[in-house]
Design a protein around this nucleic acid. Structure first.
Length: 717
RNA sequence: GCGCGGUUAGCUCAGUUGGUAGAGCAACCCGUUUACACCGGGAAGGUCGGGGGUUCAAGUCCCUCACCGCGCACCA
């Protein structure tokens, strides 16, 4: 009897040892599996790219869930003999990482502008590297069977070439353009952000109504009203039928008399407020659109630091927050204030990362045109290229109801603003010389060219992830073998940010889909249902603490059983404790089997009696069932069935029955053979779910040829 | 406002094409029979959110209402 079996199963002693064994074997790499004859050269491939964790610290329970689900898929595929690649990497996460480091520097009393771009970037890179090391180390503790030999980083040299190549192609095709357009300016982070990076917060604010000539207008933002010289009403509004479109009126406003123009447009909601509003085209998406429609003048009121410009007269230079009440006071003195609603609730746009209040501005930025027809892609637009594969079922989203959400997002999609005024990230590959502009992979050779100061939205490089990691733009063997990837598994919160952008990039640059299946997992919540936030650094449950306490296999089962795609998971310590017992149950059952079968000649197993044949058949049926369910990604149900079968059929029935047979020496050989084959099969099918305890038992298994990680998945009908 | 998801045993949740409800944990009773007390045996527990419909048959399909959660849009 192996000494290890004399004590209860000890995950702590076992897990790191087992992971090292796997790493040493090289089986995480499909190339090694082929060299060693475990995978046939003509085998089908199964590939997954790891959604690269941000290098902003450490892994949380959400990452753990992702690693568990993907590791299960990968281990299963590998055991089925597929050419299996799980490719790791990390994401530089431009804004997220930069603002994290800025906050750290703040504590030292340093601002990034004090030390300059170069020095600051050094600090960020150091931080990113440390985070990377922590993350890789954690992923290993979690048992992820990733092919580390192919590891990538969204901001490394190879990925930079991919980014520049992608940018240039899109630029040459007219899909990337530079223009003055309405963008979301974050005065706190001092950068533009995309529509998707906005978080809306409900806030109670004052809602003022003022006299505006013969009209009354309402606003929550009096400080933007200096330049308002257009007053808009609905053409069908009977209250204002006396006024004509483009009619001029003179009126007294904040800083004296002005001339305003009446605009009649159907965008107005007659029922809201007084049914009349003035517009501020420079600082509102909707007003901008209206101004474009009627070719109205646009004036900037607020600068990029959130201060009022000279147009504000005596208020110029003031911060918005400071100016607001003073402006209201002045209007009141002039007798133009009608009322103040103190209980008005509106949604305030804030920046996801910095928390700053978004100030829409017209700015010169870089955009991706999502509506332009692309000749090289059958005159389809990027929008169409994103819609098509999902609509046609080439890309399957699990659970399928997210397809509707996806379509809805694309239909409302505006051009994607990709330039950012931050330092950390891929620099825009564009150079300027007076009025000339040059876009290229390399810096122009001649003198006097100055590169664009801005960097790219981090999702631009993430969008290339399925193929930039496989060597694109080079035509590599990896790219040919593993792209499109089999599954993209990630949280549903980045459906738009990432999944949509990957489809965009792959469809446009490669003319093929990036992945065949999208498996969306839910958010991991604490037992009380509260969100375990990733960006706030809230370590409600640290996956590593759980592993320390209960072992990896237990955590895995707790994350899989009862967790279906798209639904949130409440992580409950009781469950984890229960699955720790299960790992021990497997351990003890194995001890019994090994004890009872040590005299068994496993080269010629004895035949089974009728009763045992029936049990054997039952297991075969189970294997058939779960094999099908594995292929449909129904991991929750498979894990539950295996748990139940092992405990309540194998342990409670098969083992118990064998005791009597062996004791009485009636059909003892049949019972022993059944114990042996049952345990063997169960260890194999349990392995993707509980890799550590099964691999450890496998190492004690008589006559095992290789590691369990590369053992063949049992045949099924 | 538009859309999506949820509502099943005390708790957490499964339940694939419709065929008279399942698991884990908790609680209850019995048991220390040498793989395992990180255990075994037994019993209990649900008119599947409300209402209506289709069907021989509905947790499962359709309509409707309520509550919870989420996404998107608007907010002068």
């Amino acid at each position: 009897m192996d000494e290890r079996l004399l004590k209860p199963y000890d995950p702590k002693k076992t897990e790191s040892k087992i992971y090292k064994l796997w790493e040493k074997s090289g089986f995480f790499s499909p190339d090694v599996c082929m060299e060693k004859g475990i995978v046939k050269p003509d085998a089908e491939s199964f590939s997954v790219v790891l959604p690269p964790p941000n290098v902003t610290g450490y892994l949380h329970t959400g990452h753990a869930l992702m690693l568990v689900i993907e590791d299960i898929m990968i281990r299963h595929a590998r055991m089925k003999g597929l050419k299996t690649l799980w490719l790791p990497g990390t994401d530089h996460a431009a804004i997220a990482t930069q603002s994290k480091v800025e906050k750290l520097l703040e504590k030292e009393g340093i601002r990034k502008n004090d030390i300059g771009r170069e020095k600051f970037l050094k600090r960020v890179e150091k931080y990113a590297l440390d985070s990377h090391d922590t993350i890789v180390n954690q992923a290993k503790i979690m048992g992820a069977s990733l092919d580390w030999s192919r590891e990538a980083f969204t901001l490394d040299e190879k990925r930079n070439i991919a980014v520049k190549t992608a940018f240039k192609r899109m630029y040459d095709d007219g899909l990337i353009y530079r223009g003055n357009r309405m963008v979301n300016w974050d005065p706190k982070g001092q950068t533009v952000i995309s529509d998707d990076e906005i978080v809306y917060e409900e806030r109670k604010s004052k809602f003022y109504t003022f006299k505006y000539g013969p009209f009354e207008i309402s606003t929550a933002r009096p400080e933007t009203k200096f330049g308002d010289k257009y007053v808009v009403m609905h053409p069908d509004d009977k209250k204002y039928k006396g006024w004509k479109h483009l009619q001029k009126i003179k009126l007294e406003w904040i800083n004296g008399p002005i001339e305003a123009t009446v605009i009649k447009d159907e965008m107005i909601d007659m029922e809201f407020g007084t049914g009349v509003m003035t517009i501020t085209p420079w600082h509102s998406h909707e007003d901008f659109a209206l101004a474009e429609k009627y070719k109205l003048e646009k004036e900037q009121i607020i600068d990029k630091y959130g201060r009022l410009l000279p147009i504000a007269g005596e208020f110029a230079g003031m911060k918005i927050s400071e100016a607001r009440e003073k402006i209201v006071e002045k209007l009141k003195t002039k007798g133009l204030l009608v009322s103040i609603d103190e209980n008005y609730v509106n949604r305030v746009a804030t920046a996801e990362r910095s928390g700053g209040m978004i100030e829409p501005q017209i700015m010169l930025q870089w955009f991706v045109d999502v509506n332009k027809k692309i000749p090289s892609r059958d005159n389809k637009s990027l929008k169409e290229l994103m819609l098509e594969p999902v609509r046609e079922g080439k890309i399957k989203i699990i659970p399928s109801h997210f397809e509707k959400v996806y379509f809805n997002w694309i239909e409302n999609l505006r051009d994607w603003c990709i330039s950012r005024q931050i330092w950390y990230g891929h620099r825009i590959p564009v150079w300027y010389r007076k009025d000339e502009i040059y876009c290229g992979i390399e810096e122009p050779a001649e003198k006097d060219w100055v590169q664009d100061e801005d960097t790219l939205d981090t999702w631009f490089s993430s969008g290339l992830w399925t193929f930039s990691t496989l060597g694109w733009p080079e035509k590599t063997k990896d790219l040919e073998t593993y792209h499109p990837t089999s599954v993209l598994e990630t949280g549903h919160d980045i459906l738009f940010f990432w999944i949509a952008r990957m489809i965009l990039m792959s469809q446009y640059l490669l003319g093929e889909i990036p992945f065949k299946n999208v498996y969306l997992h839910g958010m991991v919540r604490a037992a009380d249902g509260k969100k375990m936030s990733k960006s706030l650094g809230d370590k409600a449950i640290d996956p590593l603490d759980i592993i320390e306490k209960y072992g990896n296999d237990a955590l895995r089962l707790a994350m899989i059983i009862g967790n279906t795609p798209g639904n949130d998971l409440k992580l409950n310590e009781n469950d984890i404790r229960g699955y720790k017992k299960f790992a021990n149950k497997i351990w003890n059952a194995s001890r019994f089997v090994f004890e009872q079968t040590k005299d068994l000649d496993i080269s010629t197993l004895p035949s089974l009696d009728e009763e045992d044949k029936a049990s054997d058949k039952e297991l075969q049926n189970l294997v058939t069932e779960i094999s099908k369910e594995m292929n449909e990604f129904r991991f929750s149900i498979v894990a539950e069935k295996l748990y139940h079968y092992f405990w309540h059929t194998f342990a409670d029935i098969v083992i118990e029955r064998s005791k009597a047979k062996i004791l009485k020496n009636q059909n003892a050989s049949s019972a022993k053979a059944l114990l042996f084959t049952h345990l063997r099969t169960l260890l194999i099918v349990l392995h993707p779910f509980m890799p550590f305890v099964t691999e450890e038992i496998w190492s004690i298994f008589p006559n095992h040829k290789n590691l369990l990680i590369v053992e063949s998945w049992p045949k099924y009908k």
